[in-house]
């Protein structure tokens, strides 16, 4: 019962964060600020949604015993989460670096040290 409530809270916040990421891609003016929305919100939303899956599977797993298919589901969901956590910031870094080296200036910037030192 309590586990169900925690699951619904995780699902609600996770869905809201994914929607915020999608809207942020349209609200922000340039590549770098869009990367902020697209990276942070989807990463934390993935953590919460996969946590919801893991909570439900573990409760079934404990009820059914060690060799149920839910144990495999739990482990693989956790591995998928670790893969997302490792790869998402790295690809954001690659996109930002590629964007700056191909000559895109940050919009409405008050300071740009990278432009001054390595034009």
């Amino acid at each position: 019962m309590i586990l169900d409530i925690i699951t619904y809270i995780c699902i609600g916040i996770g869905c809201l964060l994914n929607l915020l990421a999608a809207i942020g891609l349209h609200r922000f003016p340039d590549v770098y600020t869009r990367l902020h929305a697209g990276t942070k919100c989807t990463t934390f939303g993935s953590i919460l949604l996969i946590a919801a899956v893991v909570i439900q599977s573990v409760s079934v797993w404990v009820a059914e015993g060690l060799s149920s298919p839910q144990s495999v589901l739990t482990l693989h969901a956790v591995i998928a989460l670790v893969v997302i956590l490792l790869t998402n910031p790295t690809s954001a870094h690659a996109i930002g670096r590629a964007a700056h080296r191909s000559g895109i200036k940050p919009a409405r910037a008050v300071v740009d040290d990278l432009e001054k030192e390595k034009p």
Binding site: N18, A22, L25, L35, G38, T42, I84, N88, I95
Partner: peptide, 13 residues
């Protein structure tokens, strides 16, 4: 590319 990267994460989840 930012859109594609975000889309990939959403598809995985």
């Amino acid at each position: 590319l930012v859109g594609l990267d975000t889309l990939n994460t959403v598809v995985v989840v």
